[in-house]
Design a protein around this nucleic acid. Sequence first.
DNA 1: CAGTATCCTCGGAGATACTG
DNA 2: CAGTATCTCCGAGGATACTG
Lengths: 133, 133
Amino acid sequence: MAVSLQVLRTRSPGVLTALCPTRVVLDHVTSKWGVLVLAALADGTRRWGELRREVDGISEKMLASTLRTFEADGLVERRAYPEIPPRVEYSLTPLGDELAEAIAPLLDWVLAHAGEIVDRDASVQTRGSSVSR
Amino acid sequence: MAVSLQVLRTRSPGVLTALCPTRVVLDHVTSKWGVLVLAALADGTRRWGELRREVDGISEKMLASTLRTFEADGLVERRAYPEIPPRVEYSLTPLGDELAEAIAPLLDWVLAHAGEIVDRDASVQTRGSSVSR
DNA sequence: CAGTATCCTCGGAGATACTG
DNA sequence: CAGTATCTCCGAGGATACTG
């Protein structure tokens, strides 16, 4: 039995309610590209271009904005080298590293079970269309 | 050192790329209300009204749609009792239960560190406004 | 009580072009 | 190479009203 909202709230009443600061942080992490960017940085420094390639499908705008959010959160460190051509490296701070470890189980679960879920959704669709409606 | 995209891809090449099914599942879980609804159900059955109250701020529309997505995914079971007044109960399936356990570390981390992050964001704002720009 | 049905808004997100 | 700057749009999400 995993930890529920109710249980969490016996420890910290009012946590994760609408105006609770935890909501902001949770929103950053679960933003469209948040988990993927964190996962890309999880085992070390990456350059901008590497991130663009690793986080497949992300636009430059969203990569920049996701990184800036995490930088402001103190989860990611940005290091720019004044060279030509420019080089910029991103890495997790100790705090970001902790977070990356906290989402690892989620990633593992997704990899392990995505297949059954997608298959199931497809068959629900199929059944749905063959029934009334 | 947490597990990175690169490491995951040595195990499953191409995983979590743009068209990979895992992306769909990850999107469901990290949808705006996904984590909170799962957390609310994590230690047992809940009625519709209980969920509305526990997941503070969610609209009826989003609660319905989040629950239907998870039901189609096989993560949540919906049980309706033909009574007057109506009663409907939602609970996690075994698969959903596994997922709830996988996101528990994330929730724990958020609760433990939200404070420092929000404080930091606030001070970044302050510093930002006092500097050039 | 447990939902639908509608209408509407807002901003997340994409596409494209440009720059130091 | 590593980003900004704009423009645009779609649809996730919200508000409100209604119903079996």
